[in-house]
Amino acid sequence: MKKSVLRSFGLLGLLLFFPLFLFTFSDPYFIEKSAKAFIEWKLKSETNKKIDSIQLPQSKSIEKFLRHRVNKIRQETEQKLEILKKQLKNDAPKIIVTQLAKMRDLSCKCREKWKERLRSFLIFKIDSLEKARERLADFAQAKYMEIVEKLTLDVRIFLGTNSLIFLFLLLASFLRPKTIDHLFLPALLMLVSTIVCAYFYLFEQNWFYTIIYNNYTGFGYIAYLVIVFAILCDIVFNKAKVTTKVINWLLNAIGTTFSVASC
């Protein structure tokens, strides 16, 4: 019974994550289409950050020498810059909506060579409000594609890693049939992970993509999977010696007299 339950769970996990992993390659726009709301939110956030980062160039040596004369001019220019940035922020929503419509057209040539364009906008200079609007539109296009590419890669890593863990769990149940009790620990950890991810995807989709996209939380999830993988390696290659101690410690902590033995 235990073997059937464990193997069924391993198989179901594999059937859930692996086909989705393959589907991201058969339909490379699948993630982009399913994460529309997240990409739009992220693009707005990145655009506002870019506008906030616009600053006057650092003073040249001649300006430093004549600091007392140019200081007043610089203050006036900074005030004008703040007004310009405020106008840009007011215009940004319309610009983003227009660029989103273009970028979501998968046949649009604007989706090509975005890396070069993004690189050229790392330094965002303002000559005039009209020029700034044009550059902001180009920045939005390039940033959109950067977000899509990074999100696609991160989701593939997420799906691929989960597929490998479930595959290893399934194989371990056949390679080490005597360790079924031990295998329930990594299976439980993967069950919790799968339920949490499923909940976020179904009811809090933006949070799901944020967790995957964000480096810190993404690395935290990878670390979690590494722990599960290490437990599986201990069971398969080390006769579950470490896992046995962990399980027995947990059982003692909850006050039960039941224990498992290493094999």
Rank of each mutant, 00 (worst) to 15 (best):
Y199A: 13
Y199D: 09
Y199V: 15
F200Y: 13
Y201Q: 06
Y201S: 04
L202Y: 06
L202A: 14
F203E: 07
F203W: 08
F203D: 06
F203P: 04
E204V: 04
E204I: 03
E204D: 12
E204Y: 08
Q205P: 07
Q205W: 05
N206E: 15
N206T: 09
N206W: 04
N206H: 08
W207P: 00
W207S: 12
F208G: 02
Y209E: 04
T210W: 15
T210G: 11
T210R: 15
I211G: 05
I212A: 01
I212M: 05
Y213R: 05
Y213D: 03
Y213G: 06
Y213F: 15
Y213V: 05
N214Q: 13
N215S: 14
N215P: 08
N215V: 09
Y216K: 13
Y216A: 13
Y216I: 12
T217Q: 10
T217S: 15
T217H: 06
T217W: 07
G218L: 05
F219V: 09
F219C: 07
F219G: 10
F219W: 13
F219E: 15
G220H: 07
G220I: 07
G220D: 09
G220L: 14
Y221K: 07
Y221C: 05
Y221R: 10
Y221S: 11
I222D: 00
I222N: 00
I222V: 12
I222K: 02
I222C: 00
A223G: 12
A223D: 15
A223L: 12
A223F: 09
A223I: 07
A223H: 10
Y224E: 02
Y224C: 02
L225M: 11
L225G: 03
L225W: 02
V226S: 06
V226A: 11
V226Q: 05
I227E: 04
I227L: 12
V228A: 10
V228T: 07
V228D: 01
V228S: 02
F229Q: 03
F229P: 01
A230R: 07
A230T: 08
L232D: 06
L232M: 08
C233Q: 10
C233R: 06
D234P: 04
D234W: 01
I235R: 00
I235H: 01
I235M: 03
I235P: 02
V236W: 03
V236C: 04
V236I: 15
V236G: 02
F237Q: 11
F237T: 07
F237E: 09
F237W: 14
N238S: 12
N238E: 11
N238H: 09
K239C: 08
K239Y: 12
A240H: 01
K241P: 03
K241V: 09
V242S: 11
V242H: 03
V242M: 09
T243L: 05
T243K: 02
T243D: 04
T244M: 06
T244A: 04
T244S: 09
